[in-house]
Simulated scan of single mutants.
Amino acid sequence: MRVLVVEDDRGIADLLVRGLERAGYEAAAVSSGTEALTASPEPDVVLLDLGLPDMDGTEVCRRLRTRSDVAVIVVTARGEEGDRVAALDEGADDYLVKPFGLAELLARIRAVLRRVRPADRELLSHGDLTVDLRTRTVRVGEREVALTPKEFDILEVLAVDPGRVVSRQEILERAWDEHWYGPTKVLDVHVAALRRKLGTPGLVETVYGRGFRLGPAAGQADGPEAP
């Protein structure tokens, strides 16, 4: 998922980009409306400040809406009702007033994506593994796999980008809470149960010292796996 931060305050933009990347998003920042309108490739989500140096954010939103259904979340210090109404009337999907917490921003991104994401992006496939984000069901081949909510959340984090090594901390932050500071051993218990239920050796791989990833689509590990 690509997120474009449109923010002329470099400090705020950098904080948002780092927070989004820690949450597993591909993030970039631009500082003007013109750059937002010409960004390539097109993002999945735009976090749009209203007070831009070259044009008002509502105008950026209006122009985006003439050509795209990209999700737009306004993030601004302007909290007056008139500003909210104007942005929403121009097609913004949500409106968030600064200051705000990263947890709330991530929750709003997830909510917006659930509303606007096409159906084909609700289905993640990797070899024989199919993860349906809409119904929260998992199949390996023709077999449906019953997972606990937390096991499903872990698998979703890995299945969004098969092959990418996801750190323990990132999984804990995304599947539990972005402010998780507890022991990471709880993750091992859930991963062990997930492996057992999937029943495909090597599918969920441990990359020692780095984290976990989904292995080759055929389910054949290309490296040693933890017991």
Rank of each mutant, 00 (worst) to 15 (best):
V145Q: 04
T200E: 11
E59T: 13
L133A: 05
A103F: 03
T58S: 05
A221C: 09
V112I: 00
D89W: 00
E173V: 03
E178R: 11
R78G: 01
V74Y: 04
L172P: 00
E122R: 14
A87L: 01
G24F: 13
S125R: 15
E80M: 09
D89S: 09
A13S: 10
A87D: 03
T130R: 14
V5Q: 04
K98C: 09
P227I: 05
R136P: 04
G79F: 04
P224Y: 10
T34P: 00
A119W: 05
Y181C: 08
S32T: 15
V145C: 05
E35V: 01
D93G: 10
R10I: 08
G199M: 13
I171P: 05
M1C: 03
A146I: 11
L20D: 05
G219A: 14
E178N: 02
A71M: 04
L48S: 02
P118S: 03
L133T: 07
E104A: 09
R195A: 10
I171T: 07
G11N: 08
L214N: 09
L64D: 01
L102W: 05
A36E: 06
A36V: 07
R139Q: 14
L47F: 02
P53W: 06
R210P: 00
A192D: 12
R143A: 14
L198D: 09
G141C: 12
P224L: 13
K150D: 12
V160N: 01
R110Y: 00
V160G: 02
E90Y: 00
A218V: 12
R10Y: 02
R136E: 15
A36R: 03
V74P: 06
L123D: 03
A103R: 13
L37K: 08
G79P: 01
E59C: 02
V145N: 03
P162K: 07
L64E: 01
V207F: 07
G199F: 14
D89Y: 00
R110H: 04
E122D: 11
E144W: 02
A27V: 10
V166Y: 06
Y208D: 06
R65P: 08
L203F: 10
T66V: 01
L194T: 11
P41W: 08
V5Y: 03
G223P: 05
P41H: 07
Q220N: 08
S167K: 06
W176T: 05
A192W: 04
D120F: 01
I12A: 11
R210V: 03
L194G: 08
A107F: 02
L37G: 08
P53C: 07
D177Q: 05
L113R: 15
L37N: 09
